[in-house]
């Protein structure tokens, strides 16, 4: 049985990895499209939603099947519990990418309030966290996610500074209200993505060590 089980787990791991890459891609591309006011790119991201949902459904089903058929225990059970949670968070992250793309479509015809620097920076941090947490999940190397609390704090600060900045723009020129509100929302989305990465990191710790910890 372990052989067959290992085979199934291999398939699952690959799917999770691909799903992680997909949601990361959605997020990064969406921010890119926002930065460049690129409608085509935004449309492309919108088109990825279906794929993301497919992954979510497929992996959940597959995980349940493995749970039922093999009734795993110990680390195997913990890993599957981790996966079930992970797909939810990954879907949320990809879904934020989708939301950001919608913002792009709405703002594409208007000029940027200023050159976007902080938002792409936040996206980069989130993408890095996602990268690390997926790697940590795969390699069980917890040192990769040791500093997640700090990174999450950085994201919080960035969001807050964007919020302050937008506030000044809005006070100067009420015409920028729509755009600035959107920016604040996007920053908020990205910060939530960081939280999700932290949640995933908690599950990875549970998978590896069997301990329930709280990150951030």
């Amino acid at each position: 049985m372990p052989e067959k089980f290992d085979h199934e787990m291999g398939l699952l791991n690959e799917d999770i990895w691909n799903m992680g890459v997909l949601s990361q891609k959605m997020l990064l591309l969406a921010v890119e499209s926002l930065k460049n006011r690129d409608k085509d790119l935004a449309d492309k991201v919108l088109g990825m939603k279906e794929e993301l949902y497919d992954y979510d459904q497929h992996i959940e089903e597959h995980t349940l099947k493995v749970l039922i058929l093999y009734q795993p225990v110990a680390k195997e059970m913990r890993n599957l519990a981790c996966i079930l949670k992970m797909i939810t968070y990954l879907t949320r992250i990809g879904r934020y990418g989708y939301d950001i793309s919608k913002v792009t479509l709405e703002l594409a015809d208007q000029p940027l309030v200023k050159k976007l620097i902080d938002i792409p920076n936040m996206a980069k941090i989130v993408a890095g966290m996602l990268d690390d947490v997926l790697k940590a999940w795969e390699t069980e190397d917890l040192s990769l996610i040791e500093d997640f609390t700090e990174r999450d704090d950085v994201l919080d600060e960035e969001r807050y500074s964007i919020f302050r900045e937008c506030l000044t723009y809005v006070m100067e020129d009420p015409k920028t209200i729509t755009r600035c509100m959107h920016y604040v929302m996007v920053a908020r989305y990205l910060e939530r993505c960081g939280d999700h990465c932290c949640k995933i990191a908690e599950k990875v710790v549970y998978k590896v060590e069997g301990k329930h910890v709280e990150i951030s």
């Binding site: 225990v73 110990a74 069997g210 301990k211």
Partner: peptide
């Protein structure tokens, strides 16, 4: 069953 301490047990 959730988190055995010994590798052998696991």
């Amino acid at each position: 069953f959730e988190n055995p301490k010994e590798d052998l047990t696991e």
